Deep mutational scan, measured.
Amino acid sequence: LQLFIKTLTGKTSTVEMEPSDTIENLKAKIQDKEGIPPDQQRLIFAGKQLEDGRTLSDYNIQKESTLHLVL
């Protein structure tokens, strides 16, 4: 599924993920695209901070969801 990652600067990146992927996997993919180390990334979806060990489906993240990346 395609996700949009929006940064505080207003920049939006697109990443392709599976519902079974963990937040950790997602942060690794963001690191590949943006060069931001996972330990500096905080991802927010629906007002919640996402935890590394959980999966996208745990948070009911659907295709074309927008996640907010806070550093």
Rank of each mutant, 00 (worst) to 15 (best):
L1R: 03
L1V: 09
L1T: 04
Q2R: 15
Q2L: 15
Q2W: 11
L3S: 01
L3Q: 02
L3V: 09
L3R: 00
L3P: 00
F4G: 02
F4E: 04
F4I: 11
F4N: 07
F4M: 07
F4S: 06
F4Q: 07
I5P: 00
I5E: 01
I5C: 03
I5N: 01
I5S: 00
K6I: 14
K6D: 04
T7H: 14
T7N: 09
T7D: 10
T7C: 13
T7P: 05
T7E: 06
T7R: 13
L8E: 13
L8Y: 13
L8H: 13
L8P: 14
L8A: 13
L8C: 15
T9A: 12
T9M: 11
T9C: 14
T9D: 14
T9R: 11
T9S: 14
G10V: 02
G10E: 03
K11D: 08
K11Y: 13
K11P: 06
K11A: 10
K11W: 13
K11V: 10
T12R: 07
T12Y: 10
T12Q: 08
T12P: 04
T12S: 08
T12N: 06
S13F: 15
S13T: 15
S13G: 05
S13P: 02
S13H: 15
T14N: 06
T14A: 09
T14L: 12
T14Y: 11
T14P: 05
T14H: 08
T14I: 14
V15K: 01
V15D: 01
V15P: 00
V15G: 01
V15A: 03
V15Y: 15
V15I: 14
E16W: 15
E16K: 09
E16P: 05
E16H: 13
E16F: 15
M17N: 02
M17Y: 11
M17V: 13
M17I: 11
E18L: 14
E18D: 12
E18C: 10
E18G: 08
E18M: 14
E18A: 12
E18Y: 14
E18F: 14
P19W: 10
P19A: 11
P19H: 07
S20Y: 12
S20T: 12
S20K: 08
S20G: 13
S20V: 05
S20R: 07
D21K: 03
D21Q: 07
D21T: 05
D21L: 03
D21V: 03
D21N: 06
D21G: 09
T22M: 06
T22E: 02
T22R: 07
T22G: 03
T22K: 08
I23V: 12
E24M: 13
E24H: 11
E24N: 08
N25Y: 13
N25F: 12
N25R: 14
L26E: 01
L26N: 00
L26S: 00
L26D: 00
K27E: 01
K27D: 00
A28R: 15
A28N: 10
A28V: 11
A28G: 08
K29W: 11
K29H: 06
K29A: 10
K29T: 06
I30W: 02
I30E: 00
I30K: 00
I30Y: 03
I30V: 05
Q31D: 04
Q31S: 12
Q31C: 10
Q31A: 14
Q31Y: 15
Q31V: 04
Q31M: 13
D32L: 14
D32H: 11
D32T: 11
D32Q: 14
D32S: 12
D32F: 11
D32G: 08
K33C: 06
K33M: 15
K33V: 12
K33P: 02
K33D: 06
K33F: 10
K33Q: 13
K33G: 06
E34M: 15
E34P: 02
E34F: 15
E34I: 15
E34N: 10
G35D: 05
G35F: 03
G35P: 02
I36H: 10
I36P: 04
I36D: 02
I36W: 14
I36G: 03
I36Q: 03
P37N: 06
P37F: 05
P38I: 15
P38W: 12
P38T: 14
D39N: 12
D39H: 13
D39Y: 12
D39F: 11
D39P: 08
Q40F: 10
Q40L: 11
Q40V: 10
Q40H: 13
Q41M: 14
Q41V: 10
Q41K: 02
Q41F: 15
R42S: 09
R42K: 12
R42F: 12
R42L: 13
R42W: 10
L43I: 12
L43P: 00
L43W: 06
L43Q: 00
I44S: 08
I44M: 12
I44K: 05
I44Q: 05
I44T: 08
F45T: 01
F45M: 05
F45G: 01
F45E: 00
A46Q: 14
A46N: 15
A46Y: 09
A46T: 05
G47M: 04
G47T: 04
G47V: 02
G47S: 04
G47Y: 04
K48Q: 14
K48D: 06
K48G: 06
K48F: 10
K48L: 12
K48C: 06
K48V: 14
Q49G: 05
Q49H: 11
Q49D: 12
L50I: 04
L50C: 02
L50K: 00
E51F: 07
E51I: 08
E51R: 08
E51N: 06
E51Q: 10
E51M: 11
D52V: 06
D52E: 09
D52M: 05
D52W: 03
G53K: 11
R54D: 04
T55C: 04
T55S: 09
T55Q: 08
T55G: 03
T55P: 06
T55D: 02
T55H: 06
T55N: 05
T55K: 12
L56E: 00
L56P: 02
L56C: 00
S57Q: 13
S57V: 07
S57K: 12
S57R: 12
S57D: 08
S57T: 08
D58M: 05
D58Y: 15
D58T: 05
D58I: 03
D58C: 03
Y59Q: 03
Y59V: 03
Y59N: 02
N60L: 07
N60T: 05
N60K: 09
N60Y: 06
N60Q: 08
N60M: 08
N60D: 08
N60E: 07
I61L: 07
I61P: 02
I61K: 02
I61G: 01
I61T: 02
Q62Y: 09
Q62T: 14
Q62D: 08
Q62E: 10
Q62V: 13
Q62S: 11
K63V: 07
K63N: 15
K63M: 13
K63I: 06
E64M: 13
E64R: 11
E64Y: 15
S65M: 09
S65P: 03
S65G: 06
S65R: 03
S65A: 12
S65H: 06
S65Q: 07
S65K: 03
T66E: 07
T66S: 05
T66Q: 06
T66M: 08
L67K: 01
L67T: 02
L67E: 01
H68C: 11
H68R: 08
H68W: 15
H68P: 01
H68S: 08
H68Q: 11
H68G: 04
L69E: 00
L69R: 00
L69C: 01
L69S: 00
L69G: 00
L69P: 00
V70T: 09
V70C: 07
V70F: 14
V70K: 07
V70P: 01
L71A: 08
L71H: 07
L71I: 14
L71F: 11
